[in-house]
Design a protein around this nucleic acid. Structure first.
Length: 455
RNA sequence: GCCGCUAUCGUCUAGGGGACUAGGACGCCGGAUUCUCAGUCCGGAAACCGGGGUUCGAAUCCCCGUAGCGGUACCA
């Protein structure tokens, strides 16, 4: 492939589970590299493990990618559907003597190593028999060098690798073989994937060499870990894309955050919109050390993205997350809450009082409804009953003189009103909240509170 | 065990021999704003894994150690 050919990348998840944030980052990096280079992104489903691969997982993965707004140019292509191509390649290797049938079991291999030393890879002899697997011949001498875009050359001594199995006894092929064949035949020029594949790459290189194929360029990304420094799993909270979505994060914020996990802009920029990411991201600049997924920073970043959203988009996002219509009422609620929420999930608790009766929060009531609460509420009631209009400015004009008139701190007036209309001690700004609730309902709730407070 | 990768504030990172009194961001602490909670603004604490080299000079290069991680499957 000549130097100026367009690059071709692939994202190749295995549908043995849902898409984790590590996989999402790999997908993002591939996507960014493809978009930046004007190349193509192929989506390939690595489903050669028929036991663990499920159609449901495939759907989940596609769904997650769509939610992240990462599109692809070709595929999804099922690796299993290419079985005939794999078989042809297998036959080629068998014919050339680069691979051989071997009936040795895992125990046999173990025994062989016990005899030849732990630092030596298994070397077998052709043997026919039912259930014979197919192994690739690995040279005893020399080394296989992975020219990694991120790490530079990484050398692996050939003798430490087994003659590894490339096809099972039943003829089905194994991952390291299928990947090599597919990457080559799909003309993939750059393989960007997780670090866990670095040690597998020599095997793929060996397959490629035996087949007479040119190797793609490789970039192995450092892995993502959980807050405890260990491999990411369910224990670590929002570990899957699905969970991120349910937790109320915006796709754009997730892309921004994920991009910064292992890669940094040279000017230390933190908030980088996707379009800019496409311009600035380079696989070669990705760091080498594993990164820990820190949801706190994602939350902060998500808040920034949420606050910058135009109100209609904001309302739309909130509506989707809540499963409610994006109507005028919701929009009004969104207007008064936009500056406060960091995630979509935080929105509802702050605005629910506009859609439902006040919360029954005894603790809040006891804390606030004492001392001069009754007289504050009566004064507020009076002031709010006769305003000209009921927008937040009118409400503010009516309420703001009260503290001084009653000779109390502002909180002594506003908190009782807040508890009266929302039930709790936390809400959006009190003037905006009253305006959004409307005069009629506001007065009704304040009256109810006064009623309850009267001896 | 063997093969390999990695190592800067709690976290993400900048830095690639002198520009380092090691910078930024999140988080944390303090202050300001304020009707609550947030938000916003200002300030602060906080790191070069250890030991040897190389060099006039090392966070930066080399070696060893340690730790973490990955691979070592007829998983991907």
């Amino acid at each position: 492939m000549s130097a100026d050919s367009p690059i071709r990348l692939r994202f190749a998840p295995s549908p043995t589970g849902v898409l984790h944030i590590g996989g999402a980052r790999t997908a993002l990096y591939n996507w960014l590299a493809a978009r930046r280079g004007g190349g193509a992104l192929v989506l390939r489903i690595e489903d050669t493990d028929r036991e663990r691969s499920t159609e449901e997982n495939v759907e989940q993965i596609l769904d997650a990618l769509r939610w992240l707004e990462l599109d692809w140019d070709e595929g999804p292509i099922s690796q299993a559907s290419r079985a005939d191509r794999h078989e042809a390649a297998l036959q080629q290797l068998l014919d050339s003597g680069a691979a051989y049938r071997d009936t040795a079991t895992a125990k046999d291999v173990e025994a062989w190593k016990a005899e030849h030393g732990a630092d030596r890879g298994y070397r077998g002899e052709p043997s026919e028999g039912s259930g014979a697997a197919i192994r690739l011949r690995v040279p005893d001498e020399g080394e296989t060098v992975v020219e990694d875009l991120i790490r530079g050359p990484v050398r692996f001594p050939n003798r430490s690798y087994d003659d590894f199995v490339i096809a099972r006894g039943d003829g089905s092929v194994l991952y390291n073989f299928a990947v090599a064949v597919d990457d080559a035949e799909m003309d993939i020029t750059e393989v960007v994937r997780g670090d866990d594949h670095l040690s597998n790459t020599p095997k793929q290189l060996l397959v490629l060499r035996a087949l007479g194929h040119e190797a793609p360029r490789y970039a192995h990304l450092p892995l993502l870990h959980g807050p405890d420094g260990r491999k990411l799993s369910k224990r670590h909270g929002a570990a899957s894309v699905q969970e991120l979505r349910e937790a109320g994060y915006l796709p754009a914020a997730v892309r921004n955050y994920l991009a910064l996990l292992g890669w940094g802009a040279d000017d230390d920029a933190t908030l980088i919109p996707t379009e800019e990411l496409v311009e600035r991201f380079r696989v070669e600049d990705v760091g080498r050390a594993a990164a820990i997924f820190d949801e706190k920073k994602l939350r902060w970043m998500n808040g920034r993205y949420m606050r910058e959203l135009p109100i209609d988009d904001y309302t739309e996002a909130v509506a989707r997350h809540l499963g409610r219509p994006a109507d005028q009422r919701l929009r009004a609620a969104c207007e008064i809450v936009q500056e406060k929420a960091q995630t979509l999930a935080e929105v509802w608790p702050l605005i629910r009082f506009l859609f439902e009766p006040p919360l029954e929060d005894e603790k809040a009531w006891r804390k606030v409804m004492k001392d001069g609460a009754l007289s504050s509420l009566e004064a507020a009631r009076g002031a709010l009953g006769s305003t000209e209009g009921f927008d937040s400015a009118a409400v503010e004009a009516a309420l703001s003189p009260l503290p001084e008139r009653l000779g109390v701190k502002p909180g002594k007036v506003y908190q009782p009103v807040r508890v009266a209309i929302s039930g709790g001690t936390v809400s959006p700004g009190i003037f905006e909240s009253l305006a959004a609730l409307g005069r009629e309902e506001s007065l009704r709730r304040i009256d109810a509170a006064i009623e309850r407070l009267r001896p």
